[in-house]
Design a protein around this nucleic acid. Structure first.
Lengths: 260, 260
DNA sequence: ACCGTTTGTTCCATTTTTTGGAACGTAGTC
DNA sequence: GACTACGTTCCAAAAAATGGAACAAACGGT
């Protein structure tokens, strides 16, 4: 096993729930002999990959990781990062992808990724739609506080399609469902015959919030295919939340950690 | 030379001015044979410290550096406290605030607080700059012993902008001035047309040292406004020194010695 | 299509580093 | 003052890195 591999094994011990580690922690987590741990920790500290608190003598990620992390493409821009991932998913599933942002209680489409399936693009970039009648729109709303949601949705609840939540109570039920599952869906709402599934993504750094959806023809897709889309979206959400530092991703990670 | 050392040599080739590198770039910058470069780049990619663009085949810092970078000093009280105070000052003055740490004779920007003034952020987090050409960099150096300063500044004194200290003697004169007043300033040094004032803050407990600065456009500020910034910084420094137990007048070496 | 060039990977005997058990510090504690 | 927890250093055996050379793949010009 190479020195680099061992170094990485140590670095991978750190996480949001374990931002710093003692010598003993590292030894237990890596299962390596004391001598190896001692030498390796010293090397990592000397080269800047780790820092050691002079008082507690605990180790934490070093200045070099900070500098390099700032160069990672995730800092380019949230939308471009999401678009790259969405392109992959659309290529695999053949469906059409959307990226939107929230503006008041409406959403604005920013990017469209056309898939191979011949579903006409009905929501061009710039299109405004009430967020309460789309999958990604509701996903974004679900990320706001109840108070914030109430402030955004007009008191005079708008007239919406039959499949959409018909009043504020129904809306909150839908949003709470999304908060539980992390994924949102819609069918025959904004456009007759079109269904979609989506989720919301936040940047851990700027707090910027975007909604991502994949849409398809309801008739032309089977239940199996829609389940596949759901899996793809779930995996995509997990990847993006890691890359963008979405706080929701960390919560989910912690829950997964507790379970295992 | 160990595998880890070589790996670090490669990682240190990346910077804000060089966020991605080709195989050839790395080979030239490290001066290593092709075979070694090839193997090491593959290892770094496989372990997540580097990513490779599938199209351009260029390398850039990987997801692991991003994740670790987010953990760097995430729970650092000194920085969190300073950032809160800096936010207030930047809100009042409209200028842009920086928090940096010293690494050798260079400083690395850790935090930025953007003000309301439209001065584009030119030093993003992670940016490395010689500490001798910035206000907060010199303020940090001034907190070291003369011996330690001499050890850090390269014997072959670097080429610096016209307004910066041109040699070691001039540098020490500037640093002694900072030691007297507690505040440091700069104008037209690291960036043409940009001035800044700053100070250094140490934790009385750990000996940790950070540099805080507020920067502004030289043309767009009056002498009166700069005097106002100076007052604000002086007051902020006093508040922070009380909170963090910074015994101004003691060198960092003395502090670190007492702590351990 | 062909040849030369650039660019990167794989091979392998030699050199160098890593490994991990054991002996050796160094505090803190009862 | 012995005991213990915590780390570091030593050293011979084992494993990995090295780098020149052969090899492969992609590109570019004619």
């Amino acid at each position: 096993m190479s020195a680099l591999t061992n170094a990485i094994d140590i670095l991978r011990c750190f996480s949001t729930s374990r931002p710093d580690l003692s010598f003993a922690d590292v030894q237990v987590l890596t299962g390596k002999p004391k001598s190896s741990t001692s030498r390796l920790l010293r090397s990592l500290r000397d080269c800047g990959l780790l820092e050691q608190d002079p008082h507690s003598r605990r180790y934490r990620p070093g200045l070099l990781t900070f500098e390099l992390g700032r160069l990672h493409r995730a800092h380019d821009d949230l939308i471009a990062t999401a678009e790259r991932e969405l392109r992959d998913v659309c290529a695999r599933t053949g469906h059409t992808g959307y990226i939107a942002v929230l503006d008041g209680y409406q959403q604005v489409v920013l990017r469209i990724v056309t898939g191979s399936n011949p579903l006409r693009v009905v929501n061009p970039p710039g299109q405004r739609t009430p967020a309460i009648i789309t999958s990604n729109g509701r996903a974004m709303l679900a990320r706001l506080s109840d108070q914030e949601i109430r402030a955004r949705v007009p008191l005079d609840y708008p007239k919406v399609p039959a499949n959409s939540p018909q009043n504020f109570t129904e809306l909150m039920a839908r949003l709470n469902e999304i908060r539980r599952t992390g994924i949102s869906d819609a069918a025959d709402e904004a456009i007759e015959g079109v269904g979609s599934q989506g989720f919301a993504l936040a940047s851990g750094e700027s707090g910027e919030l975007i909604g991502i959806a994949v849409s398809y023809s309801v008739q032309a897709t089977t239940e199996i295919e829609r389940a596949n889309v759901r899996r793809e979206l779930g995996a995509m959400a997990a990847r993006l939340r890691r890359i963008t530092g979405d706080p929701l991703g960390q919560t989910i990670e912690q829950l997964a950690g507790l379970a295992s």
